[in-house]
Design a protein around this nucleic acid. Structure first.
Lengths: 198, 198, 198, 198
DNA sequence: AATGAATGAGTCTTCATTCAT
DNA sequence: AATGAATGAAGACTCATTCAT
């Protein structure tokens, strides 16, 4: 399903993705019907199937794009930083801020992990994030800036904390993302064993 | 829907809960039909509705019972322990082990958070866990065993790490639960600021 | 389904009939389940099928008994009255009063006419009422007390008026049955052509 | 559920209404399934729900349209007639003829009165008919053309007679509607107290 | 006589997808 | 590109009836 699209077509497609993302996050994937999406946009059903071959494909597409987007954001944040520990911190911060800005997508990520159909695609995406973080953790350990512990486990723990705190503080309570990022960074710095304050 | 049940009835009900839990975890709530459940058990469709008034009710029932079960396990683990830091550690450990033993339920918890219908029930359950942990964290801070940071944030972070590591190491890789519990405890001890080894 | 019943059995059966009649009238035959009936009485399902072979049979039984009851009441009212016009009047009055007392049954009669399954049984019952009235009408015509018009049509018209006024005035508005009976009698006396007031 | 329909769509909708009306009258509302309707028309099940949001909605729609149709017919029949007694007579006649032509609908009206769900909608419709008739009756009484009796009761009685005679003579016996109308008019003229023949 | 449990065909309804225009 | 209409498999749930005890 990768048609050549006119500019107008690209816009339509983006519109569909945006609206669907919102609906999926709000009501859940299964409780959002294709009819809901096209009705919400005031277009006919044919439009949907002109741009996507199925509801599932749309969802997977949303996932893929989002994961890439988050990763890009993290990499931009850490490029040009030498200190691996600093890179980790900036990466965490970038991740939390991205999640805060894309609350809908965070919810979709969570859902995607719970359904066999999407589980694998999600895992792959997460593995990328993990291995990104792992690289910096390993470097930091090698340089003696961190105690020698399993870098993968550390990376996973960081992700767990980021998701959880973002979920509660930002989604439910509307806390300031920067403050939440501080909280996550603080907990994780200690958790991974940073001993001297930056 | 709380009928007076004969022993045979109680057994059936338990059987339905067990099988449904498994199916829900495997395929997801929405992709598991009531028909799947009763067919899997080789009984008629009416049986389901004799014991539960709806698929949703069954799910909520599973959630409630499980959350209670996990909490009971944690409280048993820490009763008779004086040191609050020790209690936190034992609580984490008990939680991880419970999650390891109830992998299916962990998945259901995750799903439940993603759907408006179940979101609230889930949040309440989690708040209980959080406030349980919070009590011990506060005590530890008061006693000067931990640096003074927001205990609720710490509690949430702990839960995030527990879920994430259990998810990856136990569900996907079949790691030894005790080892995973060690990982979580180690990360969280540092994360909350414990400085002297127990 | 005509079992030999002990006194206690007869009571149970009557209890079932009474309760079912009420439920049928309230909610309609189809919207009243056998479960509703037995639950409302606090007994098991077996009880129902011990006394009746089916829900349908119960309904037919209710219809039959009621029609007989109404007829008996009318005949008691007119026995020992010589003047056929007076008999008609008393018959109308007895009918209206019976309907007023058995509001539930009037509703069931109406429903029964609308469903193929019960239509025929109902028609037969009504035909009996009609032919009862017809006899007196014919006699009155023969004696020259009434103008010579089709007695069957007159009988039907009487029934129509009785049902309609009872329905509106007694069921909906709780009017005094005697007053309603007066209304019906007055309209029908004129309608059939009585010219001199009794 | 009031979609914008293409001509083809309007036709389908009308087709569904016509067929459903027939089935409902024949077998009763509850014994006619949505499947019966769509199968009878040789279309898929979705078609039904494209045009109506539920079986109940369809039924109510049929009721509403019919009641309006009958009323329009009566009003056309009496417009341009000055004498109130004449208007009553023409109204009765128009009503009976309409009922004769719409035998199915008469049955549905009867059923609708027996079920709580539809009862209120029906009552409202009937109240309109009653108050229509009442107006003319009151006028006639005021002019001294009729004795002074409760016009509402008279109106109701007229409706009762109309329904009953139509039911028996037209539906069951296929009598000529004009003849039946004569019968009804004759009985009701006397019933309301008309003394001089038109 | 009576109960709780079970059956399973049948009901209404939804919805991803396709198609004619 | 887009629309309204149609499809039909699948879903949750109901309920008259039967059965084991």
């Amino acid at each position: 399903m990768s048609r050549q699209l006119t500019p107008r077509g690209k816009q339509r497609r983006a519109q569909l993705i945006a609206f669907a993302t919102h609906e999926f996050a709000e009501k859940g994937y299964h409780l959002t019907s294709v009819a809901d999406i096209v009705d919400g946009l005031g277009v006919g059903k044919g439009v949907f199937y002109w741009y996507f071959s199925s509801k599932e494909e749309l969802f997977v597409e949303i996932m893929r794009t989002s994961q890439r987007g988050m990763r890009r954001r993290q990499q931009e944040a850490i490029s040009a930083v030498d200190d691996p520990v600093k890179r980790i911190e900036l990466g965490i911060r970038a991740g939390v801020l991205w999640l805060a800005e894309h609350n809908d997508l965070r919810k979709l990520f969570e859902f995607a992990r719970t359904e066999a159909t999407f589980r694998d695609a999600m895992r792959k995406g997460q593995e990328v994030l993990v291995s990104d973080a792992q690289i910096h953790l390993e470097e930091a350990i090698q340089l003696g800036h961190l105690p020698d512990r399993d870098p993968e486990a550390l990376a996973l723990a960081i992700i767990g904390v980021s998701n959880q705190l973002t979920n509660v503080y930002i989604d439910s309570r509307g806390e300031d993302p920067e403050v939440v990022a501080d909280l996550v960074v603080s907990f994780c710095r200690d958790g991974i064993g940073v001993t001297v304050r930056g």
